[in-house]
Write a protein that binds this DNA or RNA. Structure first.
Length: 202
DNA sequence: CTATAGATAATCT
DNA sequence: GATTATCTATAGG
């Protein structure tokens, strides 16, 4: 009698990227057989110099400007893919970077794709996460509420995650906005919150 | 534990 | 030609 809950609908993502990023912590992200509990996200909004859409729409960032709830996959550093979920409204560049998750489903496949056995190295980091799940160019633009993608809501019976807010990691130039959201009690973060400025959240 | 260099290519100026 | 929302290996405390 353990029916899987419905995936989060498109309307969930039609809100400020800040709210979506915070609310995604504790949800379950699935791509095919692989996935797990989201423990770390970052928000990017159009008015922010760090946002890929800050300087206008291009072929690369077009999904970020599209309707909410679609996967924005970009390639960087000559070797890494990273996955975001577009948010807010069509025409506005905003999204949530999926930075880390706790492997729960299809762990064997993740180990094979990553080439490392340590659970804590499988998906703790945006490029690791994408590689572990097998996300690449082909997944750019896919809706996250339809197979093979799904994001499941938190278990209502489980305690709410303790979400901490820190500066975003790896962003250059511009201002340091506290738009990283992490489960303070997770051991699967890409970086300890203690190593970044922490602001109380909530 | 922290710090730093090097890898490597699409994208943008 | 410069930059990059990163990762890994390696060196040092």
């Amino acid at each position: 009698m353990s029916a899987s809950p419905d995936p989060l609908p498109q309307t969930f993502f039609a809100r400020s990227a800040l709210e979506v990023a915070r609310d995604l912590v504790g949800c379950t992200f699935l791509f095919g057989e692989a996935g797990g509990r989201i423990v770390e996200t970052e928000a990017y909004r159009q008015d922010d110099p760090c946002c890929h859409g800050y300087r206008g729409k291009t072929d690369r960032n077009a999904v970020l400007f599209g309707p909410p709830g679609h996967l924005y996959v970009y390639f960087t550093y000559g070797m890494h893919f990273c996955a975001n979920v577009a948010s807010e409204e069509e025409g506005v560049a905003a999204g949530v970077l999926l930075r880390a998750l706790e492997p729960e489903h299809g762990v064997e496949g993740m180990v094979a794709r990553r080439g490392v056995p340590e659970p804590r190295l499988l998906a703790s980091g945006p490029a690791r996460l994408a590689q572990a799940l097998g996300i690449g160019r082909a997944e750019n633009g896919l809706p996250v509420w339809e197979p093979p993608l799904a994001i499941l809501p938190r278990d209502a019976a489980a305690p709410e995650p303790r979400v901490v807010t820190t500066a975003r990691i790896g962003v250059r130039g511009g201002d340091q906005k506290p738009w990283r959201f992490a489960d303070a009690d997770s051991r699967f973060l890409s970086r300890s919150p203690a190593r970044t400025p922490i602001l109380p959240s909530g």
